[in-house]
């Protein structure tokens, strides 16, 4: 089994807050991340698929085609956007990177061709914080 990863990046604003809580509670739990006027990050998204190389092409899947799919389904919707306000697949969800990576998986997996198996997503929020999701 071989694992192929394509890396994409996007810059976006967000805030962490629970709309069911008071401002004080949001501040107590999320601190500066709950700033009502947003803050932002340069995100990096690692999309890993797995499979066996095709004997004719040597590819599991053409990485340029994978990039097009990721850009169309995810990056074009989130780049230079506000994740809380602008992104259809994040509506009604808490905007932590944990929820964000799971929502990205849900958007991306059905868009991949049937022969392509999505193995993992890694979403880097800052050089010191990232999440991984394996679809479980």
């Amino acid at each position: 089994m071989v694992y192929l990863t394509r890396v994409e990046h996007f810059n976006a604003a967000h805030r962490l807050y629970n709309p069911d809580w008071s401002d004080e509670q949001n501040e107590a739990v999320f601190g500066k991340c709950s700033n009502a006027n947003w803050h932002g990050h340069n995100f990096e998204l690692f999309v890993t698929i797995k499979g066996r190389p095709d004997p004719q092409t040597g590819f599991i899947f053409d990485a340029k085609k994978l990039s097009s799919i990721v850009r169309e389904r995810i990056v074009d919707k989130v780049d230079h956007r506000n994740l809380n306000v602008d992104v259809d697949f994040m509506q009604g969800k808490l905007c932590s990177i944990e929820h964000f990576v799971m929502a990205i998986w849900k958007e991306l997996e059905p868009a991949l061709p049937p022969q392509v198996k999505l193995h993992a997503l890694k979403l880097i929020e800052t050089p010191r914080i990232y999440v991984e999701y394996f679809g479980e």
């Binding site: 810059n11 604003a13 340069n42 230079h80 956007r81 506000n82 602008d86 800052t126």
Partner: peptide, 12 residues
């Protein structure tokens, strides 16, 4: 361009 989108974006 995209940097002018009205709901802001962000950076590290």
């Amino acid at each position: 361009g995209k940097c002018a989108l009205p709901n802001f974006h962000g950076h590290n």
